[in-house]
């Protein structure tokens, strides 16, 4: 197993001077290739801020983040976008599909931003993988929550990311559909994908191989 992501003493401060608030207070995590890790914490624990830094949406105030051996904690905006595009596959609580695009067009988006050829064929293949080949030309509004999250998962897989980053992937779903989505993630994990799961739900967290708990900005 090789290490793909390492956070060393990562801190994030919000605000300036007296009013400054340290939300993440020195977190160190190492993620190995093929792991399925859940980061758990209640709301206000700092897990969202941690997620933003892991997902290269935000930079830490101090400490370092190393992705595939490369320090990414001080990259510029466009470099971060470039890396995010190829390395991180986001799965959001509220799916975040673009409503005016079909399932297939949504799956194509990350490949378009990566300027990849053959996006359409790959999108069809991925939709087949999540069991939605027949919905390729449907708009998100006509789909159920479970279907939308599957489209989002297909989209997250589009650029063969280094890891999937799932932020409360079952948070907007009923428990049965939620279980189906978790099964799909488990399947992907067995297929070799590295998955980072952020959740406050213990039942969901238990599906991961390894569970880290964050509280008050620190791992416990």
């Amino acid at each position: 197993m090789s290490e793909i992501l390492r956070l060393s003493d990562v801190r994030k401060k919000i605000g300036e001077g007296e009013a400054a608030l340290e939300i993440v207070r020195g977190v160190s995590i190492t993620i190995q290739q093929g792991e399925f890790v859940a980061i758990m914490g209640s709301s206000g624990s700092g897990k969202s801020t941690l997620l933003n830094m892991i997902g290269l949406l935000d930079r830490p105030t101090s400490g370092s983040i190393t992705l595939m051996g490369r320090d990414v904690s001080s990259l510029g905006d466009d470099e971060m976008s470039e890396l995010r595009c190829r390395a991180v596959g986001f799965i959001f609580q509220n799916f975040h599909l673009l409503p005016y695009l079909t399932a297939m067009q949504n799956v194509c988006l990350p490949m378009d931003y990566a300027r990849k050829a053959g996006a359409a064929e790959r999108a069809v293949e991925l939709l087949g993988k999540v069991g939605l080949a027949h919905r390729a030309n449907s708009y998100p509004a006509t789909m159920s929550g479970g279907e939308r999250q599957r489209v989002a998962i297909a989209r997250a897989l589009a650029n063969d990311p280094v890891f999937l980053l799932a932020d409360e992937p079952t948070g907007a779903l009923d428990s049965r559909t939620g279980a189906q989505i978790m099964n799909l993630l488990a399947e992907l994990h067995h297929g070799g994908s590295t998955i980072l799961l952020i959740t406050h739900d213990e039942k969901v967290g238990r599906r991961a191989e390894k569970t880290l708990v964050i509280s008050d900005g620190r791992l416990v």
């Binding site: 949406l57 905006d77 466009d78 995010r84 595009c85 986001f90 988006l109 931003y113």
Partner: peptide, 16 residues
């Protein structure tokens, strides 16, 4: 705004 966030999360650069 949220769409811009999603697009950026998916890899859109400033110029995009």
């Amino acid at each position: 705004t949220r769409e811009i966030g999603v697009r950026k999360a998916l890899g859109a650069k400033r110029n995009d």
